[in-house]
Simulated assay, not measured.
Amino acid sequence: MTEQDERRMRPVFAPEIPEYERRLIRGMPRPLVAADGAPPREPRWGGRATVEGFGTMFLAGALFGFLPIMWCCIVTWGSVTFGLLMEAVMIGIWVAFGFTAFVAVGSVMAAFLGIMIFIFFEEGDDARLAREHHGRYLSTADLPPGSPGHECMLRAQDAIDTITGSRVWDAEWLAGLMDEETLARHEWGIAEGLAVGSPDDLRVQRLEEVAERVRAADTAARDVESGELETDEVLQQRLGAVRTAVTVLASGDNNVPS
């Protein structure tokens, strides 16, 4: 298996989805659902989905039943007094009635709290947003790893990462020509085409051309800083080439002047 085979594209979002919501959806513990599939179901009881709900129920319930002081400090943000009182009650049960009674009472408390959490605990924002925005994001569920579409998407995202991780980008030398919103539109347009079987390889090539010229400009910028180049003439020439490639990407011109 090659390194390219092991890599996975990151989810691609419609440009109108705010970055904060994109981050939440990307961080979901569960896989995203394909855009052409049924949207994720809302939890039946208004709480979290089954796997996530049982995990929360077990951990919080176990803490509350046997270590209420820890539960209060973590979950209720510092209710130490109540936690100490509950802990004293549990220790008192152990001392007065024995370890079996302690386990029995703790288990009942854990089960009760766990059930309440599972029924009433609000659904996570990530799952809610994934359901609300279903159809406006694409992931490996739409472009499976190993497929031509997935490989093409990786190329596009590699080019975007090169651009946004460059000195050219950090120095805002492309201000007015390219920004995060512009790149998001290109990324989404490429992903949409791949998902419906209409790859826009030309746009990917143009994006890669921009990235290649950005790399060349970065090299010139480093050479100017290190003193290898006495003037910034080469840098300005390469920045001009970057701007030309960006303009071509935006205009749809097939010719990329050298």
Rank of each mutant, 00 (worst) to 15 (best):
I17Y: 06
E19T: 08
E19D: 10
E19W: 04
Y20F: 07
E21H: 09
R22V: 10
R22C: 14
R23Q: 15
R23A: 13
I25C: 04
R26M: 08
G27A: 15
G27E: 15
G27R: 13
M28Q: 07
M28R: 14
P29Y: 09
P29H: 09
P29V: 05
R30D: 14
L32A: 11
L32C: 11
V33E: 12
A34Y: 04
A35D: 02
A35Q: 02
G37D: 13
G37F: 00
G37R: 13
A38C: 00
A38K: 07
P39I: 01
P39T: 07
P39S: 11
R41H: 12
R41D: 15
E42Q: 12
P43V: 01
P43E: 02
P43N: 05
R44P: 00
R44Y: 05
W45N: 03
W45I: 00
G46T: 06
G46M: 05
G47P: 01
G47Q: 05
R48Q: 11
A49D: 08
T50Q: 02
T50H: 06
V51E: 10
V51D: 12
V51A: 15
V51S: 14
V51Y: 06
E52A: 12
E52T: 07
G53S: 14
F54M: 13
T56D: 14
T56R: 07
T56W: 11
M57N: 04
F58E: 05
F58Y: 11
L59H: 12
L59E: 13
L59N: 09
L59P: 00
A60F: 03
L63P: 00
F64N: 09
G65H: 04
L67Q: 12
L67V: 08
P68T: 08
P68E: 04
I69E: 05
I69R: 03
I69Y: 04
M70F: 06
W71P: 01
C72G: 02
C73A: 14
I74W: 06
I74M: 08
I74E: 02
I74R: 05
V75C: 06
V75I: 08
T76D: 12
W77G: 05
G78A: 10
G78S: 09
S79C: 02
S79D: 11
V80C: 03
V80P: 00
V80T: 11
L84A: 15
L85C: 06
L85T: 10
L85E: 02
M86I: 03
A88T: 13
V89T: 11
I91M: 10
G92H: 01
I93R: 06
I93D: 10
I93E: 11
I93A: 10
V95E: 15
A96V: 01
A96S: 10
F97W: 13
F97D: 13
G98Y: 05
F99T: 12
A101V: 10
F102L: 08
A104P: 00
G106F: 04
A110F: 00
A110H: 04
L113W: 04
G114Q: 08
G114C: 09
G114P: 02
G114D: 09
I115K: 01
I117S: 02
I117A: 03
F120P: 00
E122R: 12
E122L: 01
E122A: 12
E122F: 01
